[in-house]
């Protein structure tokens, strides 16, 4: 309706400006604890972005050869490797990968747990049976599970970037962060005292990270001609971990596009229906008739 359309939005604008001033004005910008991770371009960014199966397969190779020595991936199943929208392995390949892992099963008829080759319905077995075993083997450190890691890591860009990011559909802070950590190992600046067992990483909050530098150039063999650099490894494993954390991303964006189209069409129809319905009220001859103010007195 037109009657008060102009007033309230202007109020909201004033309000937003006031809020911005309140929020931004006169405060010293906080010193960041760590450098901002560089924002990379990802195949799965944006409204139509989906995973690149070749990249996920490379990332899986890195996970398998390097990360899985310390990090579990307990929410991901071997069958997921063959799921649509994932790394694109065939079911046979996924079964072969499963069979190459030993998983704990049982108890058997003698009441014993036993090791058997993995089956496609099994989940990735953890490198350590429990938290205590991991800490005992790794000098007190506990590597986090990687199943949701790419959604569990972020970086605060602060005002006003967090507002802009809503419009830019920026949801890749996790992969950006993971790539940054993998590539962020440097010598500590002079005067920086590392705690025992710590490594210096310019992107890690507080800089002293427990994980030793996991990847170096040429460490994992690629057969498809992709450069075997730490930067590329970081990108590939971050993409793989994003898939591990959000395996339904492809389906979500595909359905999302259909839903958006439907909603826009339907809302458009509702708008025209609304205009038609209200037409007679807004052009009511009786109402337009000039009348004296006394007509309203009761």
């Amino acid at each position: 309706m037109k009657f008060h359309r102009m007033k309230f939005p202007r109020g909201i604008l004033a309000l937003a400006v006031a809020a911005a001033l309140t929020a931004f004005g006169s405060f010293a910008v906080r010193a960041q604890e760590a450098d901002a991770p560089p924002r990379l371009s990802w195949s799965f960014a944006g409204p139509f972005g989906i995973y690149d199966p070749a990249q996920l397969q490379r990332g899986f190779k890195i996970y398998r050869e390097v990360c899985s020595n310390c990090h579990s991936l307990k929410l991901v199943s071997f069958r997921n490797l063959a799921d649509p929208g994932g790394p694109g392995f065939t079911e046979a390949q996924a079964a072969a990968i499963a069979a190459s892992f030993q998983v704990t099963a049982g108890p058997n008829d003698q009441g014993q747990m036993y090791q058997r080759p993995g089956q496609i319905a099994d989940y990735f077995p953890p490198p350590f049976p429990n938290e205590q075993a991991a800490r005992a083997a790794l000098g007190g450190k506990l590597p986090p599970d990687m199943s949701t890691l790419a959604k569990a890591r972020s970086y605060e860009w602060g005002f006003p970037w967090f507002i802009l990011d809503a419009f830019r559909m920026y949801q890749e802070d996790g992969p950006d962060y993971i790539h940054a950590i993998i590539t962020g190992y440097t010598d500590p600046p002079p005067g920086f005292v590392l705690p025992p067992g710590g490594q210096y990483n310019k992107y890690f909050p507080g800089h002293a990270i427990g994980m030793p530098k996991p990847l170096s150039d040429g460490q994992v063999q690629y057969t498809d001609g992709t450069p075997m650099t730490v930067d590329q490894y970081g990108r590939d494993v971050a993409a793989f971990l994003m898939w591990a954390a959000e395996p339904t991303l492809d389906a979500r964006k595909r359905l999302g596009f259909q839903v958006m189209i439907f909603l826009i069409v339907f809302t458009g129809l509702l708008y025209f229906t609304k205009k038609r319905v209200w037409h007679d009220v807004l052009h009511d001859a009786e109402l337009q008739r000039p009348r004296a103010p006394t007509e309203y007195q009761h």
């Binding site: 339907f266 129809l269 509702l270 229906t273 038609r276």
Partner: peptide, 19 residues
Amino acid sequence: RRDFLYIATAAVGSVGAAA
């Protein structure tokens, strides 16, 4: 025209509800 608009809106709405 009016009836068509109403029917189209209702039909699209029903499809959406079913989906």
